[in-house]
C-alpha cells in the first residue's frame, strides 16, 4: 500500500483496553506435542488479533490475559488443538465504546 507501513506493536493497542484477567486461562492447548511436531506454520501466532499465542522455547505460550474473545483461534487452528471457552462471567475484556 504505497510505502510500507510501519510495523505495529499490538501491545500498544491492547494497552488501551480494560481487561479483568482471571487467574485461570480460558484458552488451552489440547496437546502441546501437536504444536511442536505436526504444526509447521504456527498460524495462530500470526492471525490472532491480540497476539495471544507466541512460539517460545519449543512450545506455544498462551497470553490469555489480552484475549479479545473473538474465537478465531478455535476455528482456524489447523489441528483443532485449542480448547476455547469464554472467560468466567465478569472476567476478560470489557469494552466501553465499539
Amino acid at each position: 500500500m504505497g510505502k510500507k507501513a510501519k510495523e505495529v506493536n499490538v501491545d500498544d493497542k491492547l494497552y488501551l483496553n480494560r481487561f479483568k484477567a482471571d487467574e485461570k486461562s480460558h484458552l488451552t492447548i489440547i496437546d502441546p506435542e501437536i504444536c511442536r511436531d505436526k504444526c509447521t506454520n504456527k498460524d495462530c501466532t500470526v492471525f490472532c488479533p491480540a497476539k495471544v499465542y507466541e512460539w517460545r522455547d519449543g512450545r506455544i505460550m498462551v497470553g490469555f490475559e489480552g484475549c479479545l474473545e473473538c474465537g478465531a483461534c478455535r476455528i482456524a487452528c489447523p489441528h483443532k488443538n485449542i480448547e476455547w471457552s469464554y472467560p468466567r462471567g465478569g472476567y476478560g475484556v470489557q469494552f466501553k465504546l465499539a
Binding site: 500500500m1 510505502k3 507501513a5 510495523e7 506454520n41 498460524d43 500470526v46 492471525f47 482456524a76
Partner: peptide, 17 residues
C-alpha cells in the same frame, strides 16, 4: 487471513497509512 499469513493489526495499520 490464515492462508495469506496476515497479521490483522498490520492490515488495520496499512489501511490507516
Amino acid at each position: 487471513i490464515r492462508e495469506k499469513q496476515v497479521q490483522p493489526y498490520q492490515l488495520l495499520e496499512n489501511l490507516k497509512q
